[in-house]
Design a protein around this nucleic acid. Structure first.
Lengths: 130, 130
DNA sequence: CTTCATCTACGAAGCTCTTCGTTGACATCT
DNA sequence: AGATGTCAACGAAGAGCTTCGTAGATGAAG
């Protein structure tokens, strides 16, 4: 009952969440710099505004005890991933998880370790479905 | 070189595309009725407008030789799925296809047949990555 | 021919997302 | 104290998405 169902993050919001998941609790400046490392640049105030809105939406929480507020995510990466996958499943895969899985694997090569892990999961799943 | 890179469909647009993939070339009325079958209802003109915009975007093509224009998709479901998966991969899974695959399988139970098919794909993939 | 149904086209309203400039608070440095 | 830099908070602009009402063309039915 502690899950008021967070809204689906937009693309930009996901970019920010990525940083927070990687770095842990961060200030706006931290996030802005992390996002600027790559290539394109969004302005500082743009990031700030987004994070403020994300706070309103409940996607992140902030600690205001410091002058530079510190933000942290409210949902784990896993939970968010699950939400996005469920969404995509319904929207474009007619609800077939295996098809989504296969499409994912065909799209980009996975490492041997990950494939082994996936195989393991597959084993347990097939046991459950005799 | 015949791929001018179609834009990513929005959620509503995907709903329409789903219908077109299932039914094949259809009129606006066809699509509207198919969408109304389920539950909620979008107005007829709303669907029309969306499909007009989708035509401008190049997501669908239309045959105007009949009074009721006939629309058909320009990209296969597979291609669109691939696009969406690639997108999601970058946006939320740090580019790891296996993780996306596992998340998909954990989210919803797949049939035994699909699991077998997936295992097959896994076999060929592991051969390629010794 | 007149009426009625069906279809496309157009335009506008309301909403969300993204972007950034400006302002005022606060701290730090000299 | 005064100047400089950093910060949060607005507010507003512009784009895209979704919705639908209305108008005008076209075909069918009486």
């Amino acid at each position: 009952m502690s899950e008021p169902k967070l809204p689906r993050p937009t693309d930009s919001e996901l970019g920010i969440l990525q940083v927070l998941w990687e770095r842990g609790p961060s200030t706006v400046r931290d996030v802005h710099e992390a996002l600027s490392k790559g290539a394109e640049g969004t302005g500082y105030t743009t990031v700030l505004k987004l994070m403020q809105i994300m706070t309103e939406k409940g996607l992140v929480e902030r600690d205001e005890s410091q002058r530079a507020h510190v933000y942290r995510t409210r949902a784990t990466q896993q939970k968010t991933q699950r939400q996005l996958v469920t969404d995509l499943l319904d929207k474009a895969f007619g609800g077939s998880p295996a098809q989504l899985a296969m499409q994912a694997l065909s799209t980009k090569k996975a490492s041997a370790e990950e494939l082994a892990e996936l195989r393991k999961l597959l084993d347990t799943l097939e046991e459950e479905t005799p």
